[in-house]
Simulated assay, not measured.
Amino acid sequence: MFFEYSKLNKSLSWSDYETVLCIAEEGSLTAAARATGQSHPTMTRHLNGIESRLGARLFDRLRTGYVPTETGLVLLETAQHMRALTLDAERQVQGQDTRPEGSVTLTTTDTLLMGLLAPVIPDFRSDYSEVTLDVRTSNTVFDLSRRDADIALRPSSSPDLNLAGQRLGVIRHAFYRPSSWTAEEAMSGPVIGMSDDMPDDRFHSVLRDYALEDRVGLKVNSLLASYQTARSGLGIALLPTYLAEGEEGLVRQTNVIPAMDTDLWLLVHPDLQKTARVRAVLDFLRRNAFIRKRLLAGEAD
């Protein structure tokens, strides 16, 4: 009897596999603890306990981070498979929902939230009062297959083919000057550029094409910051027309710039699009007249 209990006590739970998976993906105990909301000592004790029960080291503790050993890789592969099975089962069960109620997590950028989503959320709440939108703004692409989010509203030239999606339109860009400036002042005034770590190189290329690099007097690391500083009179900025067109404090200085055109996609995992609350959000955004109108802003030059 003692032998059987000891064997049972040494077996790993799903939380043990999750710990191994999190440490491997985050690369360190500190990052894994932060991602799971645990303290560093708790995460350390958990990993030490797992290794003690198995009698094997799962990670090499290197200066650059935690790297799975060969034994750790075996557990990591199993953990990834278990997670995939768990998420698949959850998606299938959630797909059986019939009423639009509950929480829906939507990931998008801060600029799209401000320019397209925030103005229509009151109407959505009026139509679907039992659905709570949990909006996550980030320039990081969330993994919908891992349930980092239910829906993504993202600019993309090549959306994930494993996701169900609909192209809502094209995001256009143009240069805008502060409304306190005259057109003549804008010809020589300072330009707001993007920080060097901006992932979209086209912003830098357009400044070169328009010979504006030498006039950059301020750099920011987000489109929303560019929009806000331009409205404050700090310089000319390259902005999406859905955000800047017709806004108080800004005047369009150029025609739309075709090199900046980017498709806007509404994406969801195929299993989740059958869920009533997710479908409610998708249908509302697909048919929303305000979103379509703002995407067309500035198109007719």
Score class of each variant (00 low, 15 high):
L116V: 11
L73V: 07
P155Q: 04
V131D: 03
R172G: 07
D214F: 04
M198F: 13
S205I: 07
F203A: 08
S11N: 14
L12W: 11
L8W: 07
T254C: 11
A33E: 12
A183R: 09
V135S: 07
V74P: 03
L207S: 10
L8R: 15
T71E: 10
G249P: 05
Q38M: 10
K293L: 08
W265K: 10
L87S: 07
R53W: 02
V135F: 05
S195W: 02
E51Y: 04
G189V: 10
D209G: 09
P240G: 07
L144K: 04
W14A: 15
E70A: 12
M1L: 06
M194S: 07
L106M: 14
R57H: 13
V170D: 06
L47N: 08
L243I: 03
Y17I: 05
S39I: 01
G249D: 05
F2G: 13
G95C: 05
P155E: 03
L163D: 09
T71G: 15
S156Y: 01
I171E: 06
F3D: 14
T42D: 00
K219L: 00
I23W: 02
A89C: 08
I257Y: 03
P119R: 02
L113S: 12
V281N: 15
W181Y: 12
M43V: 02
S158F: 01
G165Y: 01
R177Y: 05
A186V: 11
L212I: 02
Q38G: 10
A33D: 11
G95R: 02
E247Y: 01
Q228E: 14
H173Y: 07
Q166F: 00
V135C: 09
L250T: 13
A183C: 08
D301C: 06
L62F: 01
E18Y: 03
V216L: 02
Q92T: 11
P100C: 08
D134K: 13
R61F: 06
D263Y: 08
V74R: 09
G298E: 01
A225E: 13
L250C: 10
L285A: 11
K274Y: 14
A237N: 13
D150P: 07
E213P: 08
T229Q: 13
T98C: 08
V220L: 04
Y128K: 03
A152H: 02
T19E: 00
D200G: 06
I171T: 06
F59P: 12
L47V: 11
E4N: 09
R63D: 11
E101F: 05
T111P: 03
T78N: 08
G165N: 04
L234R: 15
R177K: 15
Q166W: 00
M187P: 03
V131N: 06
T42K: 14
Y66E: 09
M198Q: 09
M82Y: 11
S129I: 00
P100T: 09
L266K: 13
L267I: 04
A31N: 11
A56G: 10
R208D: 13
Q273Y: 06
D60W: 03
L76V: 12
S180R: 09
P155K: 02
R146G: 02
E25D: 14
L161H: 15
R99A: 13
S179R: 01
P41N: 05
L239N: 14
E299K: 11
P199S: 06
L272S: 15
S205Y: 05
I291N: 10
F124V: 06
A33C: 12
Y242N: 04
E101S: 15
A300P: 00
G193F: 01
M82V: 14
Y66G: 04
P240C: 04
L153S: 10
I121R: 05
Y210L: 12
L133W: 03
M43K: 10
